[in-house]
Write a protein that binds this DNA or RNA. Sequence first.
DNA 1: CTGAAAGCGCTAACAA
DNA 2: TTGTTAGCGCTTTCAG
Lengths: 361, 361
Amino acid sequence: MSGKDHATIFDVARLAGVARGTVDRVVYHRGGVSEKTAAKVKAAIRELGYKANPVAAQLASKRKFTIACLTPSYEKGDYWDTMQKGFNEGAAAVKSHSVSIRMYHFDSDIPESYLEACQQVLKDKPSGVLMNVVFEEALRSFVHSLEEARIPYAFVDRKLDDLDYTVYCGVDPWEAGYLGAYLLTHRMQVKEIGIIRLQRDPRGQSDPNKLRREGFMRYLRDYCPDCRVTATFIPPHDPEQILKNLEQFTKDHPDIKHFVMANSRVHLMRDFLLLHPDPQRSVVGYDDIERNLAVVKDSLVEYLVTRRTPLQAYYAVVNFASCLISGQPPKKRNYYMHVDILSRFNLKDYDTQSPETVNLL
Amino acid sequence: MSGKDHATIFDVARLAGVARGTVDRVVYHRGGVSEKTAAKVKAAIRELGYKANPVAAQLASKRKFTIACLTPSYEKGDYWDTMQKGFNEGAAAVKSHSVSIRMYHFDSDIPESYLEACQQVLKDKPSGVLMNVVFEEALRSFVHSLEEARIPYAFVDRKLDDLDYTVYCGVDPWEAGYLGAYLLTHRMQVKEIGIIRLQRDPRGQSDPNKLRREGFMRYLRDYCPDCRVTATFIPPHDPEQILKNLEQFTKDHPDIKHFVMANSRVHLMRDFLLLHPDPQRSVVGYDDIERNLAVVKDSLVEYLVTRRTPLQAYYAVVNFASCLISGQPPKKRNYYMHVDILSRFNLKDYDTQSPETVNLL
DNA sequence: CTGAAAGCGCTAACAA
DNA sequence: TTGTTAGCGCTTTCAG
């Protein structure tokens, strides 16, 4: 073993009576080796208990990987902006492993923009595609193209179970919904709940929070069977109108003291909550975007149900990268994250705890 | 940049007009470089945006590090056993970076055993010591010896602020206490609270949960000023006696419906809670050890205030290792973890989400 | 199909 | 205090 505490490719080569290159060929199934030679090499590997040194492999390798991240475009501070942080951190982490990421954005209200982005990805021939579920139909056809091009793909946040993705990273939205209903109602006699929804573009074929709402409703059926739920819709980009809507809604339903927003924008209720304080009121929202953390901090919203969104993106990138590097067969890997409960007394250190903490060097 | 997309040590050396070895010396603070040269090198580094390639560094380096982990001994399933998992995972993560860990245990009821363990550590001359605070006096004198031997040290879980440690990883116990009181009382009119404490060895000079209790009491002063708190002590290793004690306690104080255990063993209440169900009762405990997760799952305990204990240990190991490897000057690095709220509806995936998920290669 | 050899970027021992 | 250089273990190209 040339004085080492572990066998090197050189030791194997010598024992097998071949060159190092040949050993490399059999180790990585690169082909082009006669069966007889391969057998000799394999025997030597077994005898020496040889394990390739990934550090050395990494250094010597010239391979480069590109991960295409196909996600909705975003504005500062919104959900996908929060995700973006995680993508960036993931990118930084995998950089020294010679994988880079490239973002592709589309407008989640405009199916055409999604199709366009898909075309662009296909044209760029990345090593893998990391994406989310927005337009299901279009997504399926895109995945079809990817499979034809033999490009592996992974999901973050949402997935379609029946597809052959490599990695998924996210939380179970149904469970998050269930938990939200628990937090909104337990220890109280709740008879009425108001659910505030967003007016999405009429053409929008996506309903990203359907499962959350279903989980929410299911909890109510299980534990508060005679609780009535009333919905109202607000226009996400018109603060004045939001305020008016909510004022009208609460005037129409004076008994509703419990509110939930199943999307990531509970902060849109801020003005209303500030202007109409009510000690009996309780509000539950979702997702750890900055503005949401702020309304919790200000005691306007009682609970936020979430997971570390940037970490979720980070995990997705890192794990997908790891799959690409190792060239493993595309077996599904699901990483379900834990659902966190955030209240005004455990807000500290939530968003500061970035994954970088974990990276050596 | 010699045709690369990133600067190498060679590029830096050339720009600074020095040899590669010199660049290496300044990057790793190895000393033996004149200030003038160092300045030139630093300028070149900045100009090129040079980042050392950890993969190459790893491959070339012959250094070995040993981290001594000095912790209380444990029994299966208890708090320090849970920590141990994290230490092991941390060890696995840093292994390929040529750092190994070695455990040293002592009995937290027997100061002498602690002194002995300290002596052993000192004799073994590790590259660094990772530890916890149990016997404060003895710890201070141990730290003194470490400083004389120029061995850096780090804390996990608890720390002493005034010492010159390198890394600390844990949560703020006071805040965890505060949060626990919130969870136990909010949305309710609570007039009486029972706090269940452990009979620790009389010689035991440690009171590990003092700060937690203080935070807890502080919340009550802030928000439930006329709530009365009554304590009782149970013997941790005598289930029958625990049951009797608790039965007697609740007989003596029939109005107490709210209980808290500030230590990690709320599961000791299990038998009592099972035998005397009471829909009005609420119990809050601390720490994510398996048996505690089980009593939450069974709805015997309503909330657990915790952090990912194994992750905490993992972070401590990895970060400390990172400091040792990089040979950075011993500047304090505090990693405050987020305080998690666990209820029966968000228990899933809490302990399964191990840090290994994040490791490439 | 197989061997030889030039690196990958950095460390560390030695020489100056 | 600084420069030089031989590797670390593997990949990959180029000859044979």
